[in-house]
Design a protein around this nucleic acid. Structure first.
Lengths: 340, 340
DNA sequence: GTGAAAGCGCTAACAG
DNA sequence: CTGTTAGCGCTTTCAC
C-alpha cells in the first residue's frame, strides 16, 4: 500500500518531463509515438490515476453535475435519474446524487457541498420551491435545471410535466363516466405538482358545472401513509364519493391498501384514477387507470438543458419544457350509473 | 456573476492573513473573538465557499464515500442507499452514487473516476464478482465494502443476506405444503445471489428426497422480461410444475404478468414464492408470499463497516455480516393436494 | 494570536 | 516534439 503515485513519479519512470506526461494523459497529441508508449507503460506499471482535485484547481471545471432529489425511495426519481445518467455518460459527464428527505435544511447543506466540490451544474427537484437556499448557486453562476418542481426566486430552466392537464383529463374522464362526487387526495399545496394537480381537478369540475365540495378535498403529503389516512376519511363521510383521484404514486398505493382494509370495492363501489404509474396498477383487479409521466425523457431533457448551459456559458433565455402526461385508461373507473 | 471569491479575498476584506481565515473556517480555535467575527462577516458578505479541490490536495481526504450499484431502477438499491446515506450524514460523510447498468466496463470507469476524486471508501454491489477491475482500489488502499454480492479477488468486508437459507426456507415451505413439482426461476449463476438461491433450492429438494428435475430449472437474468419468458417456458411444459420459486423481485413481477396473460391461476393452479419483497405482493389475490430482506439495515451496516475502516486505517480482519432474510407467508402457496 | 511561506499535483504558457 | 515554470486555493509548519 505505497503512497499514491503522482505525475512526477510517472515522469521520472518514463524519463520525461511532467508536461509531456500531462499531454499524454489528456490526449492532446504532439507527442512522439515511442515517448507516448513509454509513458503509458509507466502509468500502467505504477497504477497511476490523476488527481481530480489538482486538475480541478487548474481547469475550474469538474465535468460533474449534481442531482438533488427529495426522496430517493420514491421510484419516480431513480427513473428520472436513469435518464440523466444515460445522457450524461454520453457527454462524458459524471453524476453525483443526493437525497434531501424533503428537508430544505439538508438541501442547503447539499447545495453547499456541491459548490465546494465545484459541480458544473445541478439538476434539482427542490424541497423548497421558494428557492432562497439556492441563492448560492445563482451567485456563483452555476447553471441549474429544475425538474418536476419549479423555483420561484430565480430564472432557471425547467422541465415539468403538465400536471394540470393530467389531472384535468383524469377528472374529466371520471365525470364523463357519470361521476359527480369526485374526491381528490391532494399533495402539499406549497409544491407545484401538489397545487397544479389540484387546479386541474378544480378546473374540470368547473367546466362541467359540478360544484366543488370541500369534504371531498383531502390534504395529503405525497406519502403512502397519508394516502391511507385520506382514504379512510373519505370512507367515513356520510355521503361517500363515488370516485377518487390520487395526486401521486405513493398515495395511490396507500389508497389501495386502505380500500382493501375497508373492504371498499374498487371499481364497483368507488372508481379511481391516480397520478403517476405504479407497479401495482396492472396487478390489481380491476386494473388501475393512471396518468403516466415519461420519467426517462424528463431526465434526458433535464440533462440536455443543463449541458447546453454549461457549454454555452453565454446568455440563453430561460427555457421551460412542459411534457404531456398520458392518461392510461384501464379498468378502475366504472360508469357511475352502473349497478353495483 | 463575478469570479468566485477565494480565501485571499476574504483575508483582504477582513484585513488578516489567509492563515487566520483558514483557522476560522476549520474551527481550529486560537483566534481572537473580534478577529473571528470580522472574518465571518467577510465570508458572509462575499458568499465565500471553500474549494474542496484545494482542500483535498492538502488533506488527502474528502469525507466522501462512493456507492456503486448495478441498477438504480431496481427498488432494492434505493432502499439500501437510503440506509447508507442516513448513517453517512450522521458522521458528516458525503455520498456519491453511480449505477453501472450491470456493465463491468462502466463499473471500471466509475471506479477509476471515484479514485480520481479521492473517495475515502466505496460500497459496491459489483457487476463482476471476479473483481479484477477493483484491483485499482486495492492498490491504492481504499477501503471497500461489498454488498449483496461478494468479491472473489480480494479480501473485503462484506454484508450479505443469507440467500441460501432464504430460498431453502421458501422451498421447504412449498414442500411441506405437499408440492413436489417445484420450479425455480434462477438468476445468473455467476452472481452470489443467483447461485446461492439456487443452492438453497437444491438443498431443500435433497433434504426432502425430491429429485431435481432439470426441466423445472429455468435460467433468468434477474430482469422482468426474463421472468415473463421463464414463466411461459414453464407453462408450456407437458408436466407443469405446481409451484414456482422466483429468485428476485423483478422476475417475480414478470412472472405475475405472465401468469395473468397465460391465465394460469396463482394459488390454485400454481403456488408461488418470490425472493425479495415487492410492492405488488399484498395487492395480488392471493397475496404473494415472499422472502424479505432488511434493505435499510444492509445499508446502515455497510456504512458502519466502511467507516470503521476509514477511521482506523490499521489492520482489521475481514468482516462478514450475514443477515437473515424473513419468510413472509401470505396466500400464494396452497396445499398441493387441495382441490382446484 | 497572527503572519509568512512552503508545497499538495496538476495544466498551460512559453521557450527551445 | 519536449522541458521549464508559474500558479490554482488551500492547510500547515514555523516564526514572531
Amino acid at each position: 500500500m505505497e503512497a499514491k503515485p503522482n505525475i512526477q513519479d510517472v515522469a521520472k519512470l518514463a524519463d520525461v518531463s511532467i508536461a509531456t506526461v500531462s499531454r499524454v494523459i489528456n490526449n492532446q497529441g504532439g507527442v512522439r509515438r515511442v515517448t507516448e508508449e513509454r509513458i503509458l507503460k509507466a502509468i500502467e506499471e505504477l497504477g497511476y490515476i490523476r488527481s481530480a482535485a489538482a486538475r480541478t484547481m487548474k481547469r475550474k471545471e469538474t465535468n460533474t453535475i449534481g442531482v438533488i432529489v427529495p426522496d430517493i425511495k420514491n421510484p419516480f426519481f431513480p427513473l428520472v435519474m436513469a435518464g440523466i445518467e444515460q445522457k450524461a455518460r454520453e457527454k462524458e459527464f459524471f453524476t453525483i446524487l443526493s437525497s434531501t428527505n424533503e428537508s430544505p435544511k439538508v438541501e442547503e447543506e447539499i447545495v453547499k457541498n456541491f459548490i465546494e466540490r465545484g459541480v458544473d451544474g445541478v439538476i434539482i427537484t427542490t424541497a423548497n420551491e421558494n428557492g432562497d437556499h439556492l441563492k448560492l448557486l445563482h451567485e456563483q453562476g452555476i447553471p441549474v435545471v429544475a425538474v418536476d418542481r419549479s423555483i420561484k426566486k430565480f430564472e432557471v430552466d425547467t422541465v415539468l410535466v403538465d400536471n394540470k392537464k393530467g389531472s384535468y383529463q383524469a377528472v374529466q374522464h371520471l365525470i364523463l363516466q357519470g361521476h359527480e362526487k369526485i374526491a381528490i387526495i391532494c399533495g402539499p399545496q406549497s409544491t407545484t405538482p401538489g397545487l397544479e394537480r389540484f387546479l386541474g381537478y378544480k378546473k374540470a369540475l368547473e367546466d362541467y358545472n359540478i360544484e366543488l365540495d370541500e369534504r371531498y378535498v383531502i390534504h395529503g403529503d405525497f406519502g403512502e401513509q397519508s394516502g391511507i389516512e385520506s382514504t379512510k376519511k373519505l370512507f367515513e363521510l356520510d355521503d361517500q364519493p363515488t370516485a377518487i383521484f390520487s395526486s401521486n404514486n405513493l398515495m395511490t398505493i396507500g389508497c389501495m391498501k386502505a380500500l382493501d382494509e375497508l373492504n371498499w370495492k374498487l371499481g364497483s363501489e368507488v372508481s379511481f384514477i391516480g397520478f403517476d404509474e405504479v407497479d401495482i396498477a396492472t396487478f390489481l383487479n380491476p386494473k388501475l387507470s393512471v396518468v403516466a409521466r415519461p420519467m426517462n425523457a424528463i431526465g434526458e431533457i433535464a440533462f440536455q438543458l443543463l449541458h447546453e448551459r454549461i457549454s454555452f456559458k453565454g446568455a440563453l433565455p430561460k427555457r421551460e419544457y412542459l411534457l404531456s402526461p398520458e392518461l392510461k385508461i384501464r379498468e378502475s373507473c366504472r360508469l357511475a350509473s352502473q349497478p353495483m
